[in-house]
Design a protein around this nucleic acid. Structure first.
Length: 235
DNA sequence: TCCACACTTGTTTTTACCTCA
DNA sequence: GGTGAGGTAAAAACAAGTGTG
């Protein structure tokens, strides 16, 4: 406590109810003695609320009014709560910073992949322009005929990119159809990246459960699980 | 009616800064 | 110029009051 400073010793103490006070005209508010505080703190550690009977006991023991004990516990709970809030805030802020930096690095990674894709597309277009893949392209179009109306409807430029990508997949030996979700991400055209549905990177760094658990080392999220969700704190 | 909580008030203590011998 | 004592304003901590559910 801050009030253990040396000046306290030099101040004139009165001992009416074991409460320390200074020489002033108005002694409405007297600080409790160190011993009283110590006992109250000790009790608060074991139980943050006092039963009425226990309250009377404590008051008698410390030479205080039961109301004083009740108020002390009330104020203590309030102080404890605000302290707790401060701690929770710093934890959340730290976690946010970690996530933000991960998002940034993922964005960069994504950008790199998009550039790589564009380069590959460029390379693949060259043979087409020389008329070497005409038949293959025709057959591809017939296979994907329905996709123009279905799930993969995109803007012209996107559509072109998507089509050439699929061509490249076939030309390179194929990528499984299960990758369709990843494909969409790879084309890099969903600017509003969604944390939850975000495609997992190759090393699984973001979505591994261990990583996520480490954000909650203090059980912070557990504490808010009744009524709050983590996104409530997202601003 | 009693109790706990949030918010406020009034007092005390601590801290930081300044002046002066 | 460096240092310690004394004064002072602002900030922090505290006990208690008030209003409300």
């Amino acid at each position: 406590m801050m009030f253990d400073g040396g000046d306290n010793n030099t101040q004139e103490m009165m001992s009416v109810t074991g409460i320390s006070t200074t020489k002033t005209k108005n002694n409405n508010k007297r600080r409790f003695s160190d011993q009283q505080i110590k006992s109250l703190e000790l009790m608060f550690e074991s139980e943050t609320r006092l039963e009425p009977v226990k309250k009377l006991e404590v008051a008698k023991e410390l030479g205080l009014h039961p109301r004083q004990v009740a108020i002390w516990f009330q104020n203590k709970r309030a102080r404890w709560k605000s302290k707790q809030l401060e701690q929770d805030y710093s934890i959340l802020q730290a976690n946010y910073n970690i996530l933000a930096s991960k998002l940034e690095s993922l964005k960069k990674e994504k950008q790199g992949l998009v550039i790589q894709l564009q380069k590959l597309n460029h390379l693949l277009k060259k043979p087409e322009e020389e008329g070497q893949c005409c038949e293959q392209v025709t057959s591809m179009n017939s296979i994907d005929g329905e996709s123009d109306q279905g799930e993969g409807v995109k803007s012209d430029s996107e559509g072109q990119l998507s089509l050439s990508m699929e061509r490249s997949e076939h030309a390179l030996g194929g990528v499984s159809d299960d990758d369709s979700g990843t494909k969409i991400d790879c084309f890099g055209l969903q600017e509003k990246l969604n944390f939850i549905s975000m495609a997992e990177p190759a090393d699984g760094s973001l979505t591994s459960s261990e990583e996520w658990q480490s954000f909650d080392s203090d059980g912070l999220f557990d504490r808010y699980s009744s009524g709050y969700e983590w996104w409530d704190f997202w601003s």
